[in-house]
Structures are given as C-alpha cells and as structure tokens.
Amino acid sequence: MCAMRPEPGHEQGAGHPGWKAVLTPEEIRRALSRVAHEILERTHGGEGIVLLGIPTRGVPLARRLAARIAEFEGTSAPYGSLDVTMHRDDLRLRPARALQRTEVPSGGVDGKTVVLVDDVLFSGRTIRAALDALNDLGRPRAVQLAVLVDRGHRELPIRADYVGKNLPTAYREVVRVLLEETDGEDSVLLGERDR
C-alpha cells in the first residue's frame, strides 16, 4: 500500500487507536538534539563521557545521542548498554525477564562521566538498579541521567539531569515510547492502563 500516512497529530496516535500521541517523530528528534547540546554544555564538550543505554529502548537512544554529539562536536562519544535486570528488586512480583546485553566501551567506566540513558523515568527503580549494576562495572567519576520522557511519580530520591519532555501523567496512565530501531516508528504515546 502506498503510504499516505498522516502526520500523527497530538490528539490521536495514528495507527494506535485509543492512544494519544504526545511526541511526534520531529519532536523526538528535536528533544534529543537539545539533550545532546545540554550534555555537551554540562560536561565541557563531552570530555570523558560514556553513554550507557538501559535496554531495551535506552540503547538506541544512547546511540542517537552519541551520533548527535559526534555531529555537533566532531568527536565520537563512546556508548554502550547496561542491563539492569539482575539488579531489579521486583523479582518476586514479576516473571523473570530475559537478560539483555551489557556492553561497555573498551575504555571502561572508571573515572568517566557515565550518562545513563533511558526512555521513560517513572518510579526511579530502574535507575536505582542501574546504579547498582554500574557499581559492579567500575567506579565512574560521576553518573548522570538522560531520559526522553519524565512522567513523574517518583518512588525514590532520583532525578534526571537531562529531560527530553516533561510529561505530567496520572498514575493509572501508561506511556509508550516507540523507536524506529525497535518498533519501526518514532512516537511517544499516552494511554490508560488495563486497556
């Protein structure tokens, strides 16, 4: 079918009935560019940084941020992935998940400024697990956090250093981030739980 795909409006997620699109592909692109600029600003040109994406969608986001930084600054930013599954504290409550990759750039993390990258910041428990997991990898000089969406409802004293979009939500709502690399399209959707 020849795609006359309407640009998803903010009122309804195209192809996702019942979901509301809260970020368009263009808005995601702009948000990531802004975050990349902020990272460069806060880390004095990205000196000594390592971007570690938290699977699943934090990983392509980290890769995109690294590409932006390379584009803006002409230097490559090392990036990798950090699986936090084995450090989660909710194993009793949920079925075990398949482990994802942990891939640390060859320079390691010791003495580096690690920027953790995730798609949505919610309770903060994933980031808590990520800090523990990171602890097993080495001793960074500093750890920062970049997220595409901060939806609030924190259960731990954790905050993001870089936020693509602050999205106030109700607790019962669900935020879905879709990315080309994992889902075939870029979009952030908002919906109700238990649909």
Binding site: M86, L91, R92, L93, R94, P95, A96, R97
Partner: peptide
C-alpha cells in the same frame, strides 16, 4: 534459579 524464581510471590 533466576528464571524459576521470577514472579514467585505472584
């Protein structure tokens, strides 16, 4: 052990 014990409480 990890895979079996996931969701034990549930």
């Amino acid at each position: 052990l990890y895979l079996l014990l996931g969701g034990a409480a549930a």
